[in-house]
Design a protein around this nucleic acid. Sequence first.
DNA 1: TTGTATGCGTTATCAT
DNA 2: ATGATAACGCATACAA
Lengths: 342, 342
Amino acid sequence: MKSNEASMKDVAILAGVSTATVSHVINNTCNVNDKTKMKVTKAIKELNYKVNPTARRLRTGNSKIIGFVVSNLAHYFYQEIGAKIEEILNKNGYELFYINSHEDPEKEKQQLELCKLEDFAGVIVVPVNNDWSNLKDIYDSKPIVFIDRKPKNVRRDVVLITNTQSSFNLTNYLISKGAKKVAFISPQLDNTMQLRLDGFKDAMIQNNLSIDEDCIIFTKHKPKTYTDLAQDEEWNRILDYVINEKKIDCIISGNALFAFGAISYFKKNNIKLQKDLLFGTFDNAFWMMNLDQEIVVIEQNTKAIGEKAASILLKRLNGEAFIYDDYCIDTKLLTLNDKADK
Amino acid sequence: MKSNEASMKDVAILAGVSTATVSHVINNTCNVNDKTKMKVTKAIKELNYKVNPTARRLRTGNSKIIGFVVSNLAHYFYQEIGAKIEEILNKNGYELFYINSHEDPEKEKQQLELCKLEDFAGVIVVPVNNDWSNLKDIYDSKPIVFIDRKPKNVRRDVVLITNTQSSFNLTNYLISKGAKKVAFISPQLDNTMQLRLDGFKDAMIQNNLSIDEDCIIFTKHKPKTYTDLAQDEEWNRILDYVINEKKIDCIISGNALFAFGAISYFKKNNIKLQKDLLFGTFDNAFWMMNLDQEIVVIEQNTKAIGEKAASILLKRLNGEAFIYDDYCIDTKLLTLNDKADK
DNA sequence: TTGTATGCGTTATCAT
DNA sequence: ATGATAACGCATACAA
């Protein structure tokens, strides 16, 4: 389909030069006489010429597009990270496309394949696939930075939070508040959750508290909306079980998604947190601040995470060589909505 | 940059045919002998050949990518719509890229320009720019569907909710609950807000209630995080003003963003909704269900909105010709967290 | 049914 | 300093 846009050829003809010269002017790739440069610039303006990125990409194999492939875009958490990433990348001439893998490994694989075929300059990924031994080739040529989860069998830059330490701190804090029998509950056991679990166990052991493995629960929930989640019967069963049968006095939630479901349960059952039941969770989600529940949270520094991921990616894009490493961002332990607030 | 991927030429050589034949096999564009078809298919598999979308796009001017350009991706509302759109488009062989315009008209313009340059097959837009007289050419050749807001000076398909009617119903309902002096507050006065305002005014007039124009307030807030919003001093001033000075007995919120800020204010000031103050809002956001406030909401049917937008776009992509129209999706008036719940 | 040849809009090599 | 030309990988008009 012939587009009605001006091409480089049109510019060249109007300016009375060759396409090579136009290209040189556009890309500053060669010393061009000021006079001819003027002519070309004028022609470009006159025709409202825009470089065709598709043609450029076919020729060079490079684009100015970064893919942000996210396990579940609906989490506000990733939106804050994404905004920071976008801000930094935009400043450096890149555009960010958000891609939602919906916690589906197969879908993520196809999307990453597409990013490669589309010659994206690089990708930032909140990975769903845990084992990357079959995915290594998918992004071997272009920079890739992982966020939030560290997949296996791939050596690349990873930006995480201090998972084990934060979990240790959270558990310790709740123990200091009187927790004796603690449950750890979360959807999906991935690498990140494993680290959080480690911190939890360490704290329990150091405090000479026994760990009941029955109260460490990971569900296999496929992605759901928050609304669906709150009404999910499985959450109710699990919470009924640990609270009524196992008689735990404290729950640690692995992320904001479970926290939402749990809080819905607490509301229904009229449970006052930190009084009737100690409760701590990873993530400080915006909606928590308007609740009438006191919640202990591990706040992740989304700005710092985004900034780190973007700056590492930029360095890689610029061809800087440095060792692939894990970057851990500190968290903050906060108590939301406690009486001291007022 | 020479990629190490197999090209169509490699396939042709291995299969002992011409590239034209390979192309025909891939695109079913010509009757090809079963035997040669087999040979080609085998070679494709053997080389793990993938069509290069960039080259195809340069040649044909078409891609299988749809852009979803959203005013602010952080709103969960758009995530639900997006998920539905994606589901439908994926089934039809299209991939969806999410693009965040951050309520920035200039940015949106550039992004739409990029979608055009990248030869996206089409776009679905929650528009930030209100006047499209200078943007018409930007997407004149490819299908475009607007969602949630109807921009001026462009005749294209628009998927909206029944804004005026819903607002009328909401206002009427609150009046039936005793509202006499009502404030209407929202960030950003766009076309959609104007319609909601119209419905509000109609209801007030029909009920012989006077409208205080000082209590109709639109702020010019640039996008902020929810967290920032809750602490924004401007909201506090506005709410102080209408509640304490203007002595209103009811507030209608134009969207979930303002509702969040307002609820934060109510919490701080210990105001019990529907008792101390009547309150209704557009949008049923997931976080509202866990509050200890009774809230009257206009729930938008995100699935229906997404489905309508995607199906219209698909029809346009398939070249079906029909009149550009506005499609209005019904809403539901709900009361969240009322005592009858238990 | 299959192959040849051309062009999509760039960039890059090599002359001039 | 500038221009002619090939090549990126594919689709397609046309010839065989």
